[in-house]
């Protein structure tokens, strides 16, 4: 393993320092096949230094495969991945030393105490002497592990275990933090805590975070790369992508009116039926229509509410469905964006 092409060294880890001008991660033409299945079909993207990049896609899109190649766990069939200017294939050890990686499902040694696990991770990340304890002390504060420090990892709650996983990823103060579905399986309170922690880390580090949950990426990322069936379908700020490709917003509405009146109302607001869920039933009101509709973004939703009120149709429910990831992907793919 040669490091002769790498520039000068960084004191904490003994790893060559990278050029700050170049993107921290650069992926070009990445291809990975699992037998007959094409998991990645020539994916390209960059992660600018100091940014938080959301790597977004439905389950099975190829996000985790790309991340595993980036972190050196899997080998690519074609294409190049560079991290801090170092090729992952030819400088695997140096690249691994620069990355802090929290894999999906957070695999940790549950038989070890938190303290021992972090010590093992520090030494595995080539920290020596006093740097080991300093690294542990720093991440224990950063991730709030003080109260479980001497507890076995297996006895920690899922939230704390996730923090232990994050702590091991941070222990060597990496230049790039890669988090694969970091809030998977956490309860809502733990999700909020984890997001706050990631947001804080994103202020000082380059972070790459994968998720299949759109609001998660909206809450954390500056830029996103959208991947679907092994292909990149879009990249850039999420608002820009949504504005360009995903202007239509699905919503569930339940309105007290006849079916004809609902159709007229939707026509007036330039809304359309997503009719598979359309139902008509009687209740305290004479007639009630419940339907999934699609409107022109939040403005279209407001127009629908306003028009229904003006026509005197009581609105029993009007819920925006949050711009589902799948509908955004459908929109992107039908627009020929690959």
């Amino acid at each position: 393993m040669s490091s002769s092409s790498a520039p000068a060294s960084n004191a904490a880890s003994g790893v060559p320092a990278a050029s700050s001008a170049a993107p921290v991660v650069s992926v070009r033409g990445l291809v990975k096949n699992y037998g007959e299945v094409q998991a990645l079909r020539g994916v390209d993207f960059d992660v600018p230094a100091g940014s938080v990049l959301g790597f977004l896609g439905p389950n099975g899109a190829g996000k985790t495969t790309a991340i595993k190649i980036l972190c050196g766990y899997l080998a690519a069939d074609a294409g190049t991945v560079t991290v801090c200017g170092l090729n992952v294939a030819s400088h695997a050890l140096q690249v691994k030393q620069r990355i802090g990686y929290l894999p999906e499902n957070n695999p940790v040694y549950t038989d070890m105490r938190v303290e021992d696990f972090l010590r093992f991770a520090a030494r595995a990340r080539r920290l020596r002497g006093k740097a080991v304890q300093q690294g542990i002390d720093r991440v224990v504060v950063q991730t709030g592990l003080a109260e479980v420090y001497r507890r076995s990892v297996g006895q920690c709650s899922k939230g704390f275990r996730q923090r232990v996983g994050l702590a091991q990823a941070l222990i060597h103060d990496p230049e790039l933090l890669v988090l694969d579905e970091p809030t998977n399986g956490l309860d809502p309170l733990q999700v909020v805590e984890m997001r706050a922690l990631i947001r804080e880390l994103g202020q000082t580090k380059t972070v790459m975070i994968t998720s299949h949950v759109l609001p998660e990426i909206e809450a954390l990322a500056d830029n996103v790369v959208l991947i679907h069936q092994g292909e990149k379908v879009a990249d850039g700020p999420l608002e820009t992508i949504a504005a360009e490709h995903g202007g239509r917003l699905p919503a569930r509405c339940t309105i007290a009116c006849s079916e004809e009146q609902l159709q007229e109302l939707l026509k007036d607001c330039q809304a359309t039926f997503l009719d598979q869920r359309h139902a008509s039933f009687a209740s305290a009101f004479e007639q009630v229509q419940s339907a999934m509709v699609e409107v022109d973004g939040p403005e279209g939703l407001a127009a629908l509410a306003k028009t229904a009120a003006a026509k005197g149709y009581p609105i029993l429910e009007l819920t925006p469905m949050g711009g589902s990831l799948e509908s955004l992907f459908q929109s992107l793919r039908s627009g020929g964006q690959t």
């Binding site: 972190c71 050890l93 990355i99 499902n105 040694y109 595995a124 091991q168």
Partner: peptide, 14 residues
């Protein structure tokens, strides 16, 4: 089985 192989193989070990 436990998935820690991924963690181990992404640490900078030969």
């Amino acid at each position: 089985r436990s998935g820690t192989e991924e963690l181990l193989l992404t640490f900078p070990f030969q």
